[in-house]
Nucleic acid binder design. Sequence first.
DNA 1: GAAGATTGAAGCATCAATCTTT
DNA 2: AAAGATTGATGCTTCAATCTTC
Lengths: 149, 149
Amino acid sequence: MTQAIDEIGLDAWRAFITAHAAVIGAIETELAERNLIPLVWYDVLTVLSEVPGRRLRMGDLARRLVLTRSGATRLVDRLESAGLIARERAPEDRRGAAAVLTPRGAAALRKAWPVYAGGISRLFLAPLAPSEINLLATALARVRDHVDR
Amino acid sequence: MTQAIDEIGLDAWRAFITAHAAVIGAIETELAERNLIPLVWYDVLTVLSEVPGRRLRMGDLARRLVLTRSGATRLVDRLESAGLIARERAPEDRRGAAAVLTPRGAAALRKAWPVYAGGISRLFLAPLAPSEINLLATALARVRDHVDR
DNA sequence: GAAGATTGAAGCATCAATCTTT
DNA sequence: AAAGATTGATGCTTCAATCTTC
C-alpha cells in the first residue's frame, strides 16, 4: 500500500468500473433476448455505415475498433457468414482486403438501434441530471485522449 | 433511428465506453509488462483480503465478482495452480467449497498494488479536477445502483 | 525485406449437463 | 427434488507463424 490514492479517487474508480460492467451487461442481455446482434457486431456495422463508400480496409477497421488485426479478421469472418458484411479485394493494393457493409447489414443495424438506444437512455442517462451528462462527456473524453496521448 | 437520444447524451455514452477501454487496456498492459498478476486476479485477491477469515464460498465469490459459478470455478483453478489461493471443503455443508487467500496471494496483491494504483492515478485521476472526481463517484455509483435495482 | 492479412494453437468465458450433498 | 460446485463442449480473443504482394 505504498501508493497513496485518496478515498474519493478510489470510489470514483470503482464506480467507473462497476457501472460499466453493469450497464454493458444489461444491454447485451437485452439484445440477446430479442435475437438482435451483439454489441461488437453493432460497433463494426456502425463504423462502416459512417464511412464514405461504407467500406474500410481491414487494418483501418481494426484500429478504429481497438482490435488486433487477427481479431478483426475473425470478427469480419463471422459477420460475413451472417451476410451483414462482404469482403472485397482492394483494387489499388492487392495485398489488402476491405470490409463492405451489405444491405442486410444496414438493416440489422437499424433493427438493433432502438433497443440499444433504449438501453442507453433507460440504464445510463435516466439516472443522471443534464449537467452531470455534460460533465461526464467532457471529463471522460479528456481521460480517453489523455491515455491515447 | 426511431429512438431519440440527444447529441450530448450519445457523446457521454461514447466517452464512457472508449475511456473505459483505453484505461483498462493501458493498465492491463503495464501489469503484464512487469510480470504482475492480471486485473481479474487482482479483483479476486482483493475481495478475499477484505473478508473475515480471508475465505469465501465459491458462490459468494462469483456473486461479488459478477461472474457465473463456472467462471468462478475456472478462475479459482488458475489462482490455485499459481499458489495464490487454496480450496477448502466447507465443514458445515459438505457440498460447498471455499477459496482461501494464501500468504503468497497476499504478497502478490501487495506487489501489484503500486502499479495498479499508479495507473489509476496517472491515467484516470490525473486529467480530472477534484470536483469532477467527486461528481463521477456519485453519478456513476447512482447509475450502477440503478441498473442493479 | 516489409506491410497487409490470414491461420494454427492456446487461453479464457459461458451454457448445459453432471455429480454430490442436503 | 433442490442447492453447491465442477466438467464438457463451444465460441471468442490473442500471439506467433505464414502467405501474398509490394
